[in-house]
Design a protein around this nucleic acid. Sequence first.
DNA 1: GCAAAAGTGTTATCCCTACACCCATGA
DNA 2: TCATGGGTGTAGGGATAACACTTTTGC
Lengths: 222, 222
Amino acid sequence: MPYSYPYPHPAVTTDIVVFTILAEKLQILLIKRAADPYQGFWALPGGFLDIDEDLEECAARELREETGISGVYLEQLYTFGRPDRDPRERVISVTYYALSASDQLQLKAASDAADVAWFPMDDTPELAFDHGTIIRMAHQRLVAKLNYSTIAFQFMPDTFTLSELQTVYEILLNEQLDKRNFRKWILSLGQIEETGNMSRRGNHRPARVYRVKNPDKVEIIR
Amino acid sequence: MPYSYPYPHPAVTTDIVVFTILAEKLQILLIKRAADPYQGFWALPGGFLDIDEDLEECAARELREETGISGVYLEQLYTFGRPDRDPRERVISVTYYALSASDQLQLKAASDAADVAWFPMDDTPELAFDHGTIIRMAHQRLVAKLNYSTIAFQFMPDTFTLSELQTVYEILLNEQLDKRNFRKWILSLGQIEETGNMSRRGNHRPARVYRVKNPDKVEIIR
DNA sequence: GCAAAAGTGTTATCCCTACACCCATGA
DNA sequence: TCATGGGTGTAGGGATAACACTTTTGC
């Protein structure tokens, strides 16, 4: 026990809610716990903060180590610290949420995870710790941000059609949108541009292909 | 050094940005640091988390102990954890912001604070640690919340006139508002009601006095 | 009666919503 | 030629923004 302090210190972890859109559904990434507490339960990826790394670095590292995902949009969500939230010791969890385009997912199962899998947001198993509360808050935040930011673009691949983009919005908002109004609105934001290419998949008229002008930045709109 | 762990643990603190409106200005509460590091600098009230208390409890306690303020609106803001943000040891700060009606301020100077004072938001001294960043983020959040919540009511005393309420909005938004439009809008929210009394201060027509229907809850509007 | 803030409606503009048909392609 | 999704404009309604005068009080 080589690390000693005059006053008790809590442990600090990060946990990450990773969203993507797969099979026309909003899905989140969970890891089956290999060890106690909550052995066999599904939980968010995450882990203990290294003493010299920044909080967001920690989230990115844990995500990479436990799931193989990197280079995704990452934003701090909230910090959870109820004294009884972990039976082992006092743990403060700084939570993040991440959005990933479904075309760049490359999962792996890592040492401390018996299994890694995507679950539809509306059909998740019972989760370890207070992770159920965390995913609900992350979902709320994501949906709220649709209204005043370009966060939805983080789900898109490098290039996409307007119909594909509209489908993403429809899944996130859980409602059908009018095609003409959606196109007028999304183009009026000035955040996407035509690539000049056409997408010719399916037995129908080819669709114009767009890209996000500034794909690494989430813009505030309105 | 009786508290030992197999891995290094950071310290966890809470820091609180307290806003009020005084002298027709948005002001924040700062404490002059009595000890190193940053001795003599102004800083946010805050301090170390007790091992068995909830995060928000810690913020409320530190606020009460260091400034005498209690019973105010308190909301978690963001968690700051740059490895170099405190020269003593690794410190993770879970920050909160608080809003206080100016009529219920009762300040005190406590043991570890040489001085406590209000500063106009637009005229703050150089702050200790990364507290300058924290107050800027808190201010942004406060202004953003004006648009979709009733958070501004937290600045009001139990009863108030519509002109007083309008002045608060004008100070927070830093712009003049049209009186008729403001009144139509604020009444249409259905969140305030007439007390039946009149305010007769000044050589002019008495004003109707209102109260917030649900003063302890910040409602989401729109 | 005068200064000072309270109180009150209407109109124009903009934005959002609703809505239906033709086009280009592959099979 | 048929099935499939791509692509386009306009009109009505609701919300927001602009704007000025009368009322009530204290001195």
